[in-house]
């Protein structure tokens, strides 16, 4: 912005010698093409943003629609929210989701922290292989993981339901929780631990007073990420739900199969708001502690 305005004043002063002004402008931008001169890229960015966020805008806007028919706007109302929040089934599904999310988060973060530290002591070659192995679930198709887990649980007679979902969520939350913890661990000068030992600290003291506080921002960020992933998961939860294991996303899917009411929009909006809050929190924490 400021750059732009100085440029205009600059060219005004040098009226009469246009080529000189142009040369000056080019040199200020440095070598290379003036990419900013192409109008196309701006349009593309706007399109991408629209594409990403229009569905969300639609969901949020129509959650306030007083018409039962989702796609026809009639008037503004909060009634869907009170209806959704008062619904016993939704409350039960929400409770399931939160319970699974909290347990999966706590367990996966503890595992991820231990894993991150433990892998530091491995030999270089083994470590690279281990990291690849741990990171793989991030790109493995979720449906494959879901089918595999279902088959495994049925085979080993683990009853489907909330506990089965929790187990599966722990498994796929670990790599997500690991990402920020690992990044944090890499940023710590290993000499810090040596210095602590040199100053008289034993192994446990070093863990409590160096490792944990230094990793804390990573652990918190990892926990929030794991919680969001667990809360938003549909496929795995749907496969393993069984009787009484309905989570919020599974319930929402059930709702739209019967009839799409603005209630779905209201519920989705609530989930969206919760997700945004948690992600912003994790972002702020990561920034503040740096």
């Amino acid at each position: 912005m400021t750059n732009h305005s100085t440029k205009t004043t600059g060219s005004k002063k040098t009226t009469g010698s246009k080529p000189a002004a142009r040369r000056q402008r080019r040199s200020r931008r440095g070598v290379g093409l003036g990419l900013r001169d192409f109008p196309t890229f701006k349009a593309v960015s706007y399109l991408v943003f629209a594409f990403l966020y229009l569905p969300l805008v639609f969901v949020v806007a129509y959650s306030f629609n007083s018409n039962r028919v989702v796609s026809v706007w009639r008037g503004f109302t909060f009634s869907w929210y009170s209806e959704v929040l008062g619904n016993d089934d939704i409350q039960r599904a929400l409770f399931n989701s939160l319970r699974i999310g909290v347990v999966a988060t706590v367990v996966s973060v503890v595992l991820a922290t231990g894993l991150a530290i433990g892998l530091l002591t491995m030999a270089r070659a083994g470590r690279t292989f281990a990291w690849t192995l741990i990171g793989a679930p991030l790109i493995i198709p979720e449906i494959v993981f879901a089918i595999g887990t279902l088959a495994l649980f049925v085979q080993s007679r683990i009853p489907l339901g909330v506990n089965a979902i929790t187990l599966a969520h722990i498994a796929f939350c670990v790599p997500f929780a690991l990402l920020p913890i690992r990044a944090r661990l890499r940023g710590v000068d290993p000499a810090v631990y040596e210095a602590a030992a040199d100053l008289g600290a034993g192994e446990f003291t070093i863990f409590r007073r160096m490792t944990l506080p230094l990793l804390a921002p990573g652990i918190v960020a990892g926990a929030l990420l794991a919680f969001i992933i667990s809360l938003d998961d549909f496929i795995v939860s749907y496969f393993l739900a069984g009787p009484g294991g309905t989570t919020l996303p599974v319930y929402i899917f059930g709702m739209i199969r019967n009839a799409v009411t603005p209630g779905v929009n209201a519920l989705s909006t609530l989930m969206l708001v919760a997700s945004i809050l948690i992600v912003s929190l994790s972002y702020l924490l990561a920034r503040k502690r740096r």
């Binding site: 040596e194 008289g200 600290a201």
Partner: peptide, 16 residues
Amino acid sequence: VWRRRVNTVFQSYALF
């Protein structure tokens, strides 16, 4: 390490 009456100033300082 932690029992030796010897202390080190590290090259990277290693401040906490």
